[in-house]
């Protein structure tokens, strides 16, 4: 147990270092552009704010709070200090809303959409991959290639297609937004929940469909590899029922797929967030698009930071989960 704790202690430290570097990059990259950062950052927001009074207020507040007149390294520490206080600045475009309010309002929507979609996609993908490896025939020749094709579609492309054909032309689903327009703001009522569920379907299934193919192809090759291993052959000689062997095979094949889940997270988060904005879903993705088009720098910076933190946390969770599920990994780490 000691080696186990030591190993994961090390991993946690590594993730913390990664987080610090991610925060640093988030702070540094926009400031690398040539010219005076404050005038660049704030003047780029001029398009978003029409009221000159409000504009000057933002400039002053931003200069003061983020110490824009001080040297870069000092600015960074002020930035980190503000982060700990949950102060992410004031939105340029949605003045006088603070960025942390915007993030608070949208992060729940994104989590509620992306996490279930990722998990359901992973499960369906693994089932499809296992079936394709075991049964072959039509599953391997038609169903799997079909889902592979879908998984090569950008999520926002599939979203556009679904909006046209399933929402506008067929009228089966609402066109966009997270809930019906009869609600001004989220309320605690059954009607609201029903409306949310109705609006949830299209974004959810878009993301599920996209992720099935990639997971299935990994599961398929892992299953084929496992089906050809010695322990399977030996079990067959012993006369153990095929059904029982297959259960073991799929269990073993699925374990590396958990790493696949973490990989999918990092690589698909971008497309999924853009897809969110196609459905005008009130999540981080839509806020980010809004922030970019309004040149609302503080909001954009907060969005990218939140996305990074979410992906990092997901990676930690997956890594720990993996060790809990697969005893071999635990054993290997105890040795070392």
């Amino acid at each position: 147990m000691k080696g186990f704790a030591k190993y994961y202690g090390k991993r946690l430290v590594w993730y913390l270092v990664t987080l610090v570097i991610a925060v640093f990059l988030n702070f540094m990259l926009p400031r690398l552009m040539p010219g005076d950062p404050i005038s660049q950052l704030v003047s780029s927001a001029a398009a978003g704010v029409t009221d000159m009074n409000a504009y000057q207020k933002i400039v002053d507040q931003y200069t003061k709070e983020f110490g824009m007149d001080k040297p870069l390294i000092q600015q960074f520490f002020i930035y980190v200090g503000n982060l700990f206080k949950g102060n992410l600045g004031v939105s340029f475009a949605q003045y006088p809303k603070t960025v942390s309010t915007i993030i608070k309002e949208s992060i729940g929507w994104t989590l509620a959409l992306q996490i279930p979609a990722m998990i359901v996609g992973w499960i369906l993908g693994n089932v499809l991959g296992a079936v394709a490896a075991y049964i072959r025939k039509g599953w391997d020749k038609a169903v799997l290639p079909f889902f592979l094709f879908i998984s090569n579609t950008p999520a926002f492309g599939l979203a556009l297609v679904f909006v046209t054909y399933l929402a506008v032309k067929a009228g089966w689903f609402p066109v966009g937004r997270g809930y019906g327009s009869q609600f001004a703001a989220p309320v605690a009522s059954w009607e609201f929940v029903a409306s949310v569920l109705k609006h949830y379907q299209l974004p959810f299934w878009t993301m599920v469909l996209i992720s099935i193919g990639g997971q299935a192809i990994g599961m398929r090759s892992m299953s084929i590899y496992e089906l050809n291993t010695d322990y399977v052959k030996y079990s067959r000689f012993l006369g153990i029922k095929d059904r029982k062997i297959v259960m073991y095979v799929f269990r073993n094949a699925m374990l590396p797929q958990i790493t696949g889940l973490a990989m999918a997270l990092g690589s698909s988060v971008g497309g999924n967030l853009v897809a969110e904005s196609i459905y005008s879903y009130p999540g981080i993705g839509s806020q980010m698009l809004k922030a970019i088009s309004a040149r609302d720098y503080p909001t954009l910076s907060a969005c990218t930071l939140m996305i990074t933190i979410m992906v990092l946390i997901a990676n930690v969770v997956v890594e720990f989960l993996y060790a809990v599920i697969d005893p071999r990994i635990k054993a290997a780490q105890q040795d070392g």
Binding site: L25, L29, V269, L300, V311
Partner: peptide
């Protein structure tokens, strides 16, 4: 390498692209 496999490249991409006029 590990650092940049964990930090989503999408985020870096957006940050850099947004910094360029």
């Amino acid at each position: 390498t590990n650092l940049f496999t964990v930090i989503p490249s999408f985020v870096i991409l957006v940050l850099i692209a947004n910094s360029i006029s």
